[in-house]
Design a protein around this nucleic acid. Structure first.
Lengths: 288, 288
DNA sequence: CCCCTATTGGAGGATTTCTCCACTACACGC
DNA sequence: GCGTGTAGTGGAGAAATCCTCCAATAGGGG
């Protein structure tokens, strides 16, 4: 009496596990259904009541009852829960050896790791200070050559999108020329992974001598560039000797710029939104 | 279906990611359905055709067509695949709290996620084909404007480091001029997140007309640019309305370039190592 | 402005899910 | 042995759902 009727079976995790432990609680017909489900769950999730009933050699009704007995409102609900089991069980042991799969996995791991590592190297207080200074600057100048010159431009565009006045110079001469024109109202951001790039260090030095606020983004806390920086934001390095690691360094730098830009966007949310809209309208005719 | 003769079509994983990249391939009604699915996949997997149709404000037929267009035999099949996505997705850390810590955590999560998503969108076969083609190219030309122009330059430098002949143009005129000079021995790489940037699309078209091999790196599988690309590599998108998401897009693009460059470095390990050494010697006098 | 194609949703048929109920089997008491 | 009660089972058909067909309409190109 108690053991059948409308007893609801205990609720543990995982339909499949539950089925196996409860195999004895089922009636004959239900057990046949349970066996089908346990044996070939991957197929069952794509089968209808009728199909499963036929496969199990029982009537449709028994399949329905089976699902109800497990506590589901409908057969569909049961299938979805079974699907959760089936899909989340696969811990995906890498299909086959090395080759291209491990290329993607390896580079991905490296690129994600450099972001995580950078998170720990960036000092929140310095980040906040940098954001404050940038938010109230008259103009912002990014300095960098080589790869860092590219990132400097990215930084410039990112701040332009927020409606700030930003410049970027990657030519060594123009860079130092621009630096010589700065004042206390301006901010100079020097980008150099090594922190030792002569041109960039010189530009930041000149900017500092002019009284401008200076921010350095580098991977080495004791590099020459930090001498002239009031605020230092560190990026992680991921030396991969042969494998072209330059993209990884750039990702770290861009990540830091993303932190700054997002912080600025929050601080300036109103004007930033307006700037975004203006830019959106201006760019749309350039698209197909 | 696809016009371009032997285009290497991207074969991506994950319904949700695919939906985002294919958003252009949908009709109006289908897009409404897609939006529902993207916005609340957890609920959709428990809904019937009728329910989803009502929610999206379209007819049932459009929902069915939507599933068919994605390549599923039935609506049930589509739901099962969606369930796989939903259930195997790593739970997104809650964006709790305000402060600066959540700024770093939020941006970091976003930047790492875009890399993971991109991994799933990049088709290994296409990647391999692209690497092969690039390894044997006489010269490689990167095209892009705006943010993608910056990434184009990064791509150029990355390949230069491997001893390959690489160029990058971000000026619309020079870009198309350069494209018009290419031959079958050359490779053109078009970078455009939207895939709709006129200048870049035109350049890739001209390059294709000249018989050059063409590769597109974009976030939308059905964007105009893919018409002229023999190989398409997809990047993930991370729409962050206000927050400056441009850095995130660039990180995704750089990650794909990193995949290519690392693959090339392996393939050309000998000559790449030599190139690295030459470059190292050449650059060292520029450092303090 | 017209034509042509692509897009769309409704009608209704096909399939699937579910409810209801009759039937069987078996246990137990008399 | 026989009646009675109860659990177990599947079939009939209703309800819901999924799907096909097709007419109406919107939109784009000439």
């Amino acid at each position: 009496m108690e053991q059948s009727g409308n007893q609801v079976l205990p609720e543990t995790q995982g339909v499949l596990l539950r089925l196996k432990t409860l195999i004895h609680a089922f009636t004959n017909a239900e057990r046949k259904v349970a066996e089908q489900v346990i044996q070939r769950p991957h197929e069952v999730i794509y089968e209808s009541v009728t199909e499963l009933a036929t496969q199990a050699g029982v009537g449709e009704t028994s399949v329905l009852r089976f699902a109800r007995r497990l506590g589901y409102r409908s057969y569909q609900d049961f299938k979805m829960d079974l699907a959760r089991d089936v899909f989340s069980e696969t811990p995906e042991p890498s299909p086959e050896g090395g080759g291209l799969h491990s290329l993607v996995a390896g580079v991905s791991e490296r690129d994600r790791r450099v972001i995580l590592d950078t998170d720990h190297l960036v000092d929140p207080k310095v980040l906040e200070a940098a954001i404050d200074v940038l938010a109230s600057a008259r103009s912002i100048h990014f300095f960098g050559v080589g790869h860092s010159g590219i990132v400097a431009k990215a930084g410039r565009y990112g701040l332009l999108r927020l409606g700030l006045r930003a410049e970027a110079a990657d030519d060594p001469h123009f860079q130092v020329m621009a630096a010589s024109q700065l004042t206390e109202e301006d901010v100079a951001v020097g980008l150099s992974v090594s922190g030792s790039t002569k041109d960039t260090v010189d530009s930041l030095r000149v900017a500092a001598e002019q009284g401008a606020r200076t921010i350095a983004i580098t991977a080495y806390a004791k590099a020459p560039i930090v001498r002239y920086a009031q605020m230092v934001l560190l990026t992680a390095t991921r030396e991969a000797p042969l494998e072209s690691g330059s993209f990884t360094s750039m990702i770290a730098q861009l990540h830091v710029l993303g932190l700054i830009a997002t912080g600025l966007a929050r601080k300036l949310s109103h004007s930033a939104r307006q700037a975004q809209e203006r830019i959106g309208r201006a760019i749309s005719p350039k698209l197909y």
